[in-house]
Amino acid sequence: MASIKIKTEVTGSVWKIEARAGQRLAPGATIMILESMKMEIPVIAEDGGTLVELHVAEGESVNEGQVVATLTG
């Protein structure tokens, strides 16, 4: 089981978390939505997998490239 680190593409803040630990995510599923540049930008599980851990909470600031979740493939 490969561990997949999900990184943000943008600097912003966590607006809403949509998935929970242990959840099985389909490819393309939304893990959380960030607020950045006045836009709601989803963080996506591109290849799908099981969500092992969330590393951020709602309201928290995140930097571009920060690991926000870990999945297993």
Partner: peptide
């Protein structure tokens, strides 16, 4: 593609 980075 706005899906990524809001299209920026």
């Amino acid at each position: 593609n706005p899906l990524s980075r809001g299209g920026a």
